[in-house]
Write a protein that binds this DNA or RNA. Sequence first.
RNA 1: GCGGACGUGGCGGAACUGGUAGACGCGCAGGUCUCAGAAGCCUGUGGCCGCGAGGCCGUGAUGGUUCGAUUCCAUUCGUCCGCACCA
Length: 903
Amino acid sequence: MDEKYFAKKVEQKWQKIWADSGAFHTEIDDTRPKFYALEMLPYPSGNLHMGHVRNYSAGDALAWYKRLRGFNVLHPIGWDSFGQPAEDAAVKRGVNPRDWTEENIVAMRGQLQRLGVSYDWRRQMYAHRPEYYKFDQWFFLKMYEMGLAYKKQTQVNWCSHDQATLSNEQASGGICWRCGNPVTKKDLEQWFLKTTAYTDQLLDDMAEIEAGWPQSVLKRQSDWMGRSEGAFVDFEVKASGDTLFYCPIVDGITSASDLGKNRVRVFTTRIDTIYGVNAIVLAAEHPVIQANIDNFSAEVASKIAFIRSENTKPQDHEAEIEKDGIDTGLKAVNPFSGEEIPVWVGNYVMMAYGTGAVMSVPAHDERDFEFAKKFGLHIRQVISEPHMVHEHNTMQALALEQAMPMDGILVHSDYWNGKTSDQAKVEMTAWAVKHHFGEAATTYRLRDWGISRQRFWGSPIPIVYCDVCGVVPEKFENLPVELPETAPFTGTGESPLAKVPEFYKTTCPKCDGPAMRETDTMDTFVDSSWYFFRYTDPTNEVLPFDPAMAAYWAPVDQYIGGDDHAVMHLIYARFWSKVMRDMGLVTFDEPIKRLLTQGMVVGETFFDDSSGKRVYHQPADVTVTRDAKGKMAGAVSKDGKALKYGIERMSKSKSNGVDPDEMVEIYGADGARIFVMFAAPIENELVWHEAGIEGGVRFLQRVWRLVYKWRAALSVPLSAQNEVLDTIAECTGPARKLRQKTHQTIHRVGDSFESLQFNTPVAALMELSNAIGDIGIEPDAATEADVFAVREAITALTLMLTPFAPHTAEELYSILVGDENGMLANGARFPEFNAELAKADEIEFPVQINGKLRSRIVTSPETSDEELKKLAFADTKVREFTEGKEIVKVIIVPKRLVNIVVR
RNA sequence: GCGGACGUGGCGGAACUGGUAGACGCGCAGGUCUCAGAAGCCUGUGGCCGCGAGGCCGUGAUGGUUCGAUUCCAUUCGUCCGCACCA
């Protein structure tokens, strides 16, 4: 190699050596500890973006670090290759989704390889290949057997733009997660996976991963699942006369055997406020309402119909929806007080949560308050602040200005008066149970996972419909149910598979009679829920993976990806693992021990000041002017137009995107990678500055020159003194100082990796490199001790550089040790830390007077307190400030500082 | 509205359990090399005052605890993110 650093040459050389030698191939090895480093798999769009580069650079750094620490590292990659863009391409451009996908994978794999990411490429998984999706289907059938997969007719979230159904997660906020258009509702027969059967575990097992996951992600997950503890209470319902109405049992909520058919069940977290109930409010879709719709007056019926239709409209989250509702004329009886109260339908009650029925307590709930105000309903306060209890019980309460949703002391509640909310919640629930009109209850926001998609490019759901046998699961031995070569792609709502008779015409697995296949395919989140287990055993044809393989590699030790997957993917993946545990495939509860969420990479954008259009990006098209301090004063385009500056998410349409290939071409993979790691903490947003990357390259060049400068001197074998040199006693002056810095750096870099910091270790390496450069000794004038210290420093620097700039490090390492096979073949290890050597002989003790820094004394860190005090008072500066003052006390912090308090 | 996170030079960011604020890099300024430029190298770079030694101020703002606060507490302002009537 040359004395000058040519990134491209070095990178091509080592990429070839790595590939030829299978340097990153991994197999089970019981003699070494394992480490499973995982990054979120990409969707094969055809182009890597800088967010990917950041993600994979971090994962690769960790993988390399662990390898150098002696771990057997599994570091795989695969392709989330089912999904809508491939089908869009088919609709728009008539290409075959399979061809489109495969081509994109080839392109992106090339990009990753040019970045030199150390994957075991043999273990790639491809969601769209039958060898993989066969096991999506296998899992589906298993879950069907376990009663975890079921079909039901429901209102689904429907995106009319994408012509697709969406899970609740994907329709979060009433907006399609993919295209951003409003979501509507549509009735469809759908397959569901029973995620709700695991909600409690998903919530409770968070304790196991708490230490390794970002708090924000766990918080979002628990909010998403939305467990709330409270009670069901049954209210008897009748007409204003005495006719009992027919009340069908509401789906899934009737466990009390004596729940009468003339009762309606509400869910409340505030049973203690039940004496303040002024009405029962039902969702418009509530079965009681729907079953009796013909009994209502025309006015009531049309209002209900109106509310119902409003509910299906896309919601505008900026504007608060005004409360609306109508008195149905039905009456309900408060089981505690015997009071007769009206039954209303309200637009603010959702059928999807709880029982679709609430007891309205306007005094203590803001929504109920608003509702009562609007319709002039009675408001009664039944919870009081402790000091107000007497007033409340002796005189009528004043009109409330607002709801008071706090806990307190019960008033106007007969027998329960004087109890605290906490007491009352427990005792009143017990009372309700005793008298058979209620029970303690927990409800969740999380619904079951609807996985049916009316799409071609996904795993077919392995179900057959037979006129004779009904719904029949496909036989395991018939898997995979393969997608046909192609289908008519129209972009309309029906699955393209429904237009391919060769696909859907089949025979019944049970009776061999003619039958139809299910033509929906699975949500692609199914693929990503278990893909990381497939890496442990990627070619298994019988099982998704061999449990023994997973037992060695799983769980994932470190997962890295964007926090946009905090709720969907990461809840599904956790759910899937728990199911696999119950199937006996794995033995643990949680599949991912540690999670790191990386921040977005954003771009600088320059706007045309006159038109406001964003058209330019750094550096090619823009000249930036700065003031004397370096602050940006203005920006001008090539054709002389003034530009405004802004920061936006990178994208092609904003022309502020950065192409990873281009960066690698100009600066080299290592330069790009080290910059991405260094520029900001991994969890922060990263603003891409073209100038910054040059700093990364400059650093690599400095290290390169350093090695070449010392190369000849270091190649001289050391004398028999070698071992003696490796002690502190034999090492003084600059050599001693350098060794100290080397070992301090080893410690810092190791620590940083353990706490998943990637920016600070790069800074530490820069410092070490600066320290080597600043040693002030020329190679030809160096003593043996100097050479020893420099050799140690440069070798350590090179090894520690590997996770960030593996190609460069490999090349420099090969120069240093004279071996061309690479570090791993050579058994290279992360440099060993020596605490003795890292210790300083002398340190600077700041001396403060009243907490203000006044002087410094340089002495051994072991100096006794007495001696330190003496030294401090001997200091002229200190004298100046203590002269004629009373010394109140002297505080000495061991190995830190001296603070003299004077008056 | 509810919930969470965060405010440090011109910029990205350092700072161990309260102990020398601004590491490291970018940018900027000056110098060196060169016919010239690029690259490299050297020096400086929080603000104010001072020739200098040095002094004063300084981690969004205000107060508090402490010998000592970027770090802990309270109030407040601001930014970012999540949720969407969850009974």
